[in-house]
Nucleic acid binder design. Structure first.
Lengths: 231, 231
DNA sequence: TGAATAGTGTCTTTCAGACAATATTCT
DNA sequence: AGAATATTGTCTGAAAGACACTATTCA
């Protein structure tokens, strides 16, 4: 079915197709701070500027598939993404009207680091701003700053309600690492005993029996995330 | 700027415009149950069936504006709507590819009741299903059942975190009414003293000094929602 | 043995649920 | 007075923060 011979609904004059994209915010924690994967744009507008990986949604492609494709083809990373908000201001793209469906994904630094180069960077988020390699505040094209802020807010909201946060860590991790991730995302320190008690009794964690290696002092127990929550 | 002479991005073959709509889920509480405003469709497909009020987004129209227009023109109600999720399965509309941005709104029954007639009905939500006038489960067109379920879940999540729930009540209300609304949305009873203490100390409520009238027994104090939260 | 971090115990505060008592209004 | 509901008080248990203590590892 093409667009032109489709039956019309209600008000025939109101129906004009729009450009639809997905933009993906891949978040990670680097040195105790939340960071976002940005890709240097090859094309106009804003060519050469760092921006979120995004693609136009194809007519026969699911929205989640488009998000995965954006992250894979432009970001070089293959992880699951979750829809969080849609951005569609009339003037958000200078070329034309573009509605962008925002997706958020998380990954441990080790998963992202192999693909980083001149064109792909994992940049620290400092409050509302993204800071570049030289610690300068980056001006992002379109409304990508707003999209990133929305993704971080979404991650913060869902940190406790889901297993989402484990995606920021390697498969095996210590409770200290988990706490550092929580502190980085929430932007504040948390109480150690309370955090440990809450998490170990949450049913999400499974002890591996292994411990940290190459530590200078007492090594920590390692845990992994359970696929299914358990009592 | 028209779509055809716009500059191309990255992969030129990937860019085809899609139809974009907003569908609005207006929720209210009727007789202790959550209900949704549905409108009888005038056009194909599924003409004559009850469905969510929705419109195609115009090229020069904000998304929120399209949601307001859908609710106003098709629903006959003028209230603020909030974006909650975007639905875009390839086959969700039999005519063609349509991406729909879901909005949720709330209103007291008294606001909606004047516009109800044969074509516009406020129907009770029972678990996952919508029940019609004759208490029969209604089969909704497209993925509107899924959209409604998403809106209810969103309302439930945000019941405490925002002033959103006050929109389900008239400007002045008693604590008992407020508790009934919370119970209807959450689908379970709540503890009365705890609820009262939590709400009265939340900073959202302002006593009006007035009380209920036309009650057979002791009248309850009336409150109104504060625009700004206060200590 | 000491440095440094992992992990635990205890006290206190806060908050919500359970239950019941008191207060108010109308018939 | 009595019915019926509004409002409040008290007890209890769960959970988190503050603080400090014990345990473990390596240099």
């Amino acid at each position: 079915v093409t667009l032109t011979d489709a039956p019309l609904d209600y008000d025939p004059t109101a129906f004009t197709p729009l450009a639809v994209t997905t933009d993906v915010v891949l978040l990670s924690v680097v040195d105790g701070a939340v960071a976002v994967l940005l890709v240097k744009r090859a094309d106009k507008p804003a060519s050469g500027a760092f921006a979120l990986p995004g693609v136009f949604v194809r007519p026969d492609e699911e929205l989640g598939g488009a998000a995965t494709r954006a992250l894979h083809d432009k970001g070089g990373v293959t992880v699951r993404a979750r829809q969080f908000q849609t951005f569609g201001s009339v003037d958000r793209d200078p070329r034309m009207r573009v509605v962008s469906i925002g997706y958020v994904a998380v990954a441990p630094f080790a998963t992202v680091s192999p693909v980083l180069d001149d064109r792909r960077q994992l940049l620290r988020i400092d409050g509302d701003a993204v800071r570049g390699r030289t610690n300068r505040k980056l001006a992002l094209p379109f409304d990508h700053a707003e999209i990133i802020a929305g993704a971080v807010a979404d991650l913060r909201r869902n940190l406790d309600h889901s297993a989402f946060a484990f995606g920021l860590l390697p498969p095996e991790f210590s409770l200290r690492q988990l706490q550092e991730v929580h502190e980085a995302v929430r932007g504040e320190r948390v109480n150690k005993p309370a955090f440990r008690k809450r998490l170990t009794e949450s049913g999400w964690l499974e002890p591996t029996g292994r411990r940290e290696m190459d530590q200078r002092f007492r090594p920590a127990e390692l845990y992994r995330a359970r696929a299914e929550r358990r009592a």
